[in-house]
Design a protein around this nucleic acid. Structure first.
Length: 595
RNA sequence: GGGGGUGUAGCUCAAUUGGCUAGAGCAUCGGACUGUCGAUCCGAAGGUUGCGGGUUCGAGCCCCGUCACCCUCGCCA
């Protein structure tokens, strides 16, 4: 390609009527050509905007003829004169719509083949195709807006934490694999046959060690890697705002983060939000909303109706209660109009979450109706209606089972129905802290208790006494930040004393030997004057996704993986040569077919 | 590993009960056009209906298998 001469003096988004009569040069992509045979218009686009270029045969027949050969997405440089548009042709939808540039000279910097898909935002293109040609997808205005907003958010974060004396410190990418938590991505060591580095699922241990080292306030925008199955809001590599502070209580960390979130909401979205955020104990979140990440943009809480149901003659309810289970329900506002088919669909939905089925009653002016109504005395039906604050037109849905399952199913049903019933207003943001998490939970898989957060989380002081006797009742100094039913992040006050950390490891079945082998550096560090400390990590991709009202994290990540964790553009992961295996002392079970 | 959905022209979609020479809009190409801005008008080209097998006189449609992608449970944040 020959060198080019027409270097831009302005961007495609900045020319206004005040630039009248100036000779300017613009560089950009041809968005569109409107060729009238006589006059010919080109929309020239860059990420700042769009400017109309006009080619007139009177001005230069030669230039005009050349311009008619331009095609969409060619890269061109245009020199011309800024002219106010003639009366009646101003485009109010365009920031540069008052003017146009009358071309005097242009050069084609690069041509473009016909694109595999249109770049206009109203064109809904299959995601597979978009990912395969991500560089084109990222050329679309909506994707550029997403990434620019993300950059702004990160910038505000950095400024906020710098202002509050945080030190931005990078932690390693090649780390030691430690037990528990997410599956690690592994990197074989060349110099140590059979040994592997892990890519960090989070900088957790390093940020704690930085507290031991006295940095007091640490922040990092950190990439985290987890080799787990993907979802719309989960990628194998994602970005966290990672924060750790010394000499703090849980409230200090939460307050610091609230300040950051409020500043982001104001400076990125221009919205004031109220502080402090609501703080909801885990137990309350679970019993009212069936989840530890409640969506507070709508009501429709779970109602416990065990006391009413225990005297009814519906065996499903009474059997569940007799087995130590729960019977709870939700009142779906205005859903009594649902057909039998729609209700069956709700039941199928619930079965996807492990429910055996869903019992239902319709609230009518005259009373409650439905197949299970006959199992209840009139007084019991009235009590149900009162308990659930039900109004005529509501559909009451019940699940009876083990408490965890009842919560899970009704929690999912609640979110599902909110969407179906259109209970959620666009552009609403409801933040809340969920606090007082249980320290431990029982793992059916491992047949033992495991840390709910991670094994460095401190128990609440008042529960220390029952740590060994009733571990499942011990609450942690842990907190999750929840936004619109999505877990944005979480953190905790950490254990900073060697003796307590050993007690916790012991409870978790991490023996002295294993603890020493895997975490000796941490335990040892705690013996050299570790300050009380705690912190939080906040998922930036999710935050940006929610701020933009998007459904997928992939739309706020420049180069995401697909659901199988492949990069459709580059083809990663790809095969490597036998020579590379040999250097790394590894051999695939089945050698890949030659490509 | 399980459940669900989708797959038809470059893109987005349609095709009634199995009757079809598989259509439309946009894009592309050619032509016309001096104030458009999703320009307009005329015309053309464009398809192994993801792939393989089966049922049938006949399959885009039904059956079996398989592949790809998405949502989801488990898992994980």
């Amino acid at each position: 390609m020959a060198s080019w001469t027409l270097k831009r003096t302005h961007t495609c988004g900045e020319l206004r009527a005040t630039h009248k009569d100036q000779t300017v040069t613009l560089n950009g992509w041809v968005e569109n050509r409107r060729d009238h045979g006589g006059l010919c218009f080109i929309d020239l686009r860059d990420r700042y905007g769009r400017t109309q270029i006009v080619f007139s045969p009177q001005r230069s027949a030669e230039l005009h003829a050349k311009a008619s050969g331009l095609r969409p997405e060619w890269v061109v440089a245009v020199r011309g004169v800024v002219c106010p548009r003639p009366g009646g042709t101003v485009n109010p939808n365009l920031s540069t719509g008052e003017i146009e540039v009358e071309a005097r000279e242009f050069e084609v910097l690069n041509e473009a083949k016909v694109l595999p898909f249109p770049l206009s935002d109203d064109a809904e293109v299959g995601e597979e195709l978009r990912l395969r040609h991500r560089y084109l997808d990222l050329r679309r205005r909506s994707m550029q807006q997403n990434l620019v907003l993300r950059a702004k958010l990160v910038q505000v974060m950095r400024e906020y934490f710098a202002k509050h004396n945080f030190v931005d410190i990078e932690t390693p990418f090649l780390v030691r694999s430690t037990p528990g938590g997410a599956r690690n991505y592994l990197v074989p060591s060349r110099l140590f046959a059979g040994s592997f580095f892990a890519l960090p699922e989070s900088p957790q241990l390093f940020k704690q060690l930085l507290m031991v080292a006295g940095y007091d306030r640490y922040v990092q925008i950190a990439r985290c890697l987890r080799d787990e199955d993907l979802r719309a809001d989960r990628q194998p590599e994602f970005t966290q705002l990672d924060v750790e502070m010394s000499f703090v209580q849980a409230d200090d960390v939460m307050t610091m983060l609230e300040g950051c979130v409020a500043e982001i909401m104001e400076r990125v979205l221009g919205r004031k939000i109220d502080l402090p955020f609501r703080r909801m104990p885990f137990a309350e979140a679970l019993s009212l909303y069936g989840t530890d990440k409640p969506d507070l943009r709508f009501g429709m809480p779970l109602w416990d109706v065990a006391d009413i149901a225990k005297s009814c003659s519906f065996k499903v309810f009474t059997d569940a209660l007799a087995a130590g289970g729960a019977v709870k329900g939700i009142a779906a506002t205005g859903a009594a109009r649902y057909s039998r088919k729609e209700i069956d669909e709700l039941s199928t939905f619930a079965q996807g979450f492990g429910a055996k089925g869903v019992a239902w009653l319709k609230v009518e002016e005259a009373g409650l109706t439905g197949s299970i109504a006959k199992f209840f005395q009139p007084a019991e039906l009235a009590a149900l209606r009162e308990r659930m604050h039900a109004a005529p037109g509501d559909l009451l849905l019940f699940v009876a089972d083990k408490p965890e399952l009842v919560h899970q199913v009704l929690g999912a049903l609640r979110n599902h129905l909110a969407g179906k019933l259109d209970l959620i207003k666009d552009g609403e943001f409801r933040f809340a802290w969920v606090v007082d998490f249980p320290m431990f939970e029982y793992s059916n898989e491992e047949k033992t208790i495991v840390a709910r957060h991670h094994p460095f989380t401190s128990p609440k002081d008042e529960d220390l006494a029952i740590l060994e006797e009733k571990p499942l009742e011990v609450r942690a100094k842990a907190y999750d930040l929840v936004l619109n039913g999505v877990e944005l992040g979480g953190g905790s006050i950490r254990i900073h004393r060697h003796d307590l950390q050993r007690r916790i490891f012991k409870l978790l079945g991490i023996g002295d030997q294993e603890a020493k082998e895997k975490f000796s550096f941490l335990l040892e560090a705690f013996e050299f004057g570790a300050p009380p400390h705690g912190g939080i990590a906040l998922g930036i991709d999710r935050f940006v996704m929610l701020l933009l009202g998007l459904d997928s994290i992939r739309d706020v990540i420049a180069f995401p993986k697909n659901q199988k964790a492949m990069d459709l553009m580059t083809g990663a992961p790809g095969t490597v040569t036998p020579r590379q295996w040999k250097e790394l002392h590894i051999r695939p079970e089945e050698p890949p077919k030659a490509t």
